[in-house]
């Protein structure tokens, strides 16, 4: 396809599929339980997203999965499964493989015969037969097997003593938290440092929502921040902090605002049919201010939302110190 020459490159690729986190009319952002039914396509100023639960990332899929597999091989602690959670992990695996085969029939296939399954992923070259519940029939535990097929971070919460507990997870693209440390905690305990989240009762409302989530209903929520890294690097886990900690100070010093990344996390909540465990799966997207600046509607809205955010939330999100110059840059007209 040929494209007419433009001073500003036309929109293509990931930007057109980006889950822009703000509704058209939104000018200020607060944490809330802003959940909506999943599998509903949502148009944005640059394209559309959200038709399926899993966003494979099209041309980025292969590279993302290579990175995911590299991290999992290097650091086995990125997967944590507490005792008793294996059935829920099988539940998760089956739910997602079935969904993938329906969503992407041209590259993914699942055949079933009672408890026997055959999974083929032609994009990654996976060809695996397995038996539900038989650990020896898979090369990894069921959560890891799934985590090597799709780019989502996988989290399972389960009710225990009347609280929702994060009892299993596979996380390689974490934003400044540690799966290894947080596994086994309640939602309330994990969310402790977010200003306004616990104080305004939002955690408990979210918790009530998840506890009452019916089986076979899928909801999603979009969260965002300015990334702690000045590159597309998804793994800004706490473990790797020494490796990325200097990224932003260097970027701020150089006033290299175009490299600053908006980090968007799409969370999917599914009550799994067999065990009743609930997923809190997170698909992370990154886009630079440079890219956002090419979409006038986004440019203005992001600047307004970021600048309007109260100081405590801006501090929590980590951009209180540089949001003004960064947003001033974003608002500047793109030079022709």
């Amino acid at each position: 396809m040929t494209v007419a020459a433009h001073a500003v490159r036309p929109l293509a690729g990931p930007t057109t599929r980006l889950p822009w986190p703000f509704p058209d009319d939104l000018e200020s952002f607060r944490y809330s339980v802003n959940v909506e039914p999943a599998r509903v396509p949502r148009p944005t100023a640059a394209g559309e997203w959200g038709a399926h639960i899993v966003d494979l990332g099209a041309e980025e899929y292969g590279a993302m999965m290579a990175e995911r597999r590299r991290i999992l091989d290097a650091d086995p602690h990125r997967v944590r499964i507490l005792p008793g959670m294996l059935p829920a992990c099988w539940d998760l695996l089956l739910y997602y493989l079935r969904d993938l085969a329906i969503s992407f029939p041209h590259i993914m296939e699942l055949t079933e015969d009672g408890d026997r399954f055959h999974w083929r992923n032609h994009a990654l070259g996976t060809d695996q037969s397995f038996v539900l519940g038989d650990a020896a029939s898979l090369p990894h535990d069921p959560m890891t097997f799934l985590g090597r097929e799709i780019p989502d971070d996988l989290l399972l919460v389960k009710e225990r003593d009347g609280r929702l507990c994060f009892d299993a997870g596979l996380v390689t693209f974490a934003a400044a938290w540690s799966v290894s440390f947080d596994v086994g905690m309640t939602m309330d305990e994990i969310h402790n440092p977010v200003p306004r989240l616990t104080r305004e009762g939002i955690t408990s409302r979210a918790e009530q929502f998840l506890r009452r989530l019916p089986a076979d209903q899928v909801y999603r929520r979009v969260n965002w921040t300015l990334s702690a890294s000045g590159s597309r690097k998804l793994d800004v886990s706490l473990e790797e902090l020494p490796a990325w900690g200097t990224d932003i100070p260097a970027l701020v010093r150089d006033e290299d605002w175009g490299r600053l990344q908006l980090r968007i996390e799409v969370e999917h909540f599914v009550r799994l049919p067999m065990t009743g465990a609930v997923t809190f799966n997170i698909r992370t997207h990154m886009t630079s201010l440079d890219e956002i600046r090419r979409v006038p509607a986004w440019r203005e809205q992001l600047a307004r939302v970021v600048l309007e955010l109260p100081e405590d939330l801006a501090t929590y999100k980590g951009f209180a110190d540089y949001r003004e110059p960064a947003m001033a840059w974003l608002r500047r007209e793109v030079s022709v």
Partner: peptide, 27 residues
């Protein structure tokens, strides 16, 4: 030997406090 911030976050599984590098942003 990294300088760790003693974060007000305690693991139920280990009873330990979360510590992470406090000066990671200093180049």
């Amino acid at each position: 030997t990294r300088n760790l911030l003693v974060y007000p976050h305690v693991s139920r599984r280990t009873g330990q406090h979360l510590g992470f590098m406090v000066d990671a942003e200093e180049a």
